[in-house]
Design a protein around this nucleic acid. Structure first.
Lengths: 184, 184
DNA sequence: TCCGCGAGTGTACGATCGTACGCATGCCGA
DNA sequence: TCGGCATGCGTACGATCGTACACTCGCGGA
């Protein structure tokens, strides 16, 4: 089949290198040559393993969304009730908006692509669907949808704010959105 | 006269052309030549009016954030109480996530830059500050902050979702975040 | 009238890009 | 043993890039 028998991990290493490069220098700076150099493979390997830069990028972002869903799962998987789920969501927001800019940067690059090109929107749609599925283990579908959007906004604003809000504010927002206003 | 030896509007037309180009083809596709062609100015004008592509982009995004704050103001300015403000916010979310992809795309491009480069983060920080100032005319500072993040997330998710949520869900989320849980 | 000068422009240069394609290399059937 | 061939690589090509810089042109002062 497509993969040779000599080095099946080469393809993976190229994709890893591409993600690293996107995170560090931006999608605009990605080129066959830079990815190849970072992955330690010859330039010719790029056109051999991928039909073009676009196919490579789609695969790279596909791997990335899988990674973020795993982070989602790692935080929410252990929660056994709404209260624990709320705390887990707050932790998740602060993990994603914390020191490591890598996930933030890659997320933004993907959204930028998705905003313009339907082929990438399929990736974000599946990502959102899987995130909501996790949240629906603890909340009803409408609430899960609202909470998913809130997580997105809180993460982004916390990461970009000059004066990031603290965990108490995150938890308050999460509690408000997951509590049926005034009637329970 | 604009047709004289000097043309003070030329700078503005270049910036407008740059924003149009970013919205249509993406930041990665921006070049001096394409912007110049779209603005109807010679290539030499680019280096004459701007010190480099980066300065041009920062000015372009500065104009864009001003525009979005104006949209914010147009929706929220007329509201006279919390209830009207909530409705205005729901309208705002649906206006920003509706048919016109232009603002969405430009917003994402700016966030992507801001996620990596502090010079652009100054732009987003001022933008967030001004948005929150608008919201604080109707809600307390903590609530305004949470609501601002919610607006961001709702707008983005609605724009990227395969199955966009309806206005009722938006309004419910806005109401929940702006209502002190269960005790008003 | 005419000359100096600064605003504005056309073009050329070196770098980098994506991709095609001819060639090396070593395994495998005979 | 050995020829054929799939796998994988080095390199060259045409396009495009940002930017520098010599140049034109027309107005204002003398």
């Amino acid at each position: 089949m497509a993969t040779g028998h000599t080095d099946p991990r080469r393809r993976d290493r190229i994709i890893d290198a591409a993600l690293d490069l996107i995170a560090e220098e931006g999608l605009a700076a990605v080129s066959h040559r830079k990815v190849a150099a970072r992955a330690g493979v010859p330039l010719g390997s790029m056109t051999y393993h991928f039909d073009g830069i676009d196919q490579m990028l789609r695969e790279a972002f596909g791997r990335f969304t899988g990674h973020v869903v795993a982070v989602f799962d790692a935080h929410l998987g252990a929660a056994t009730g709404p209260e624990e789920a709320r705390a887990a969501v707050a932790d998740l927001v602060h993990a994603l908006s914390g020191g490591a800019r890598r996930d933030l940067v890659l997320t933004q690059e993907l959204y930028t692509l998705a905003a313009r090109r339907p082929a990438y929107r399929e990736l974000t749609e599946e990502w959102m669907r899987r995130s909501r599925a996790h949240l629906e283990r603890h909340f009803d579908p409408d609430t899960a949808r609202q909470l998913d959007a809130l997580i997105e906004g809180l993460t982004l604003h916390r990461a970009l704010a000059g004066d990031p809000h603290d965990r108490a504010l995150t938890l308050e927002a999460v509690t408000r959105i997951t509590t049926d206003g005034g009637r329970d």
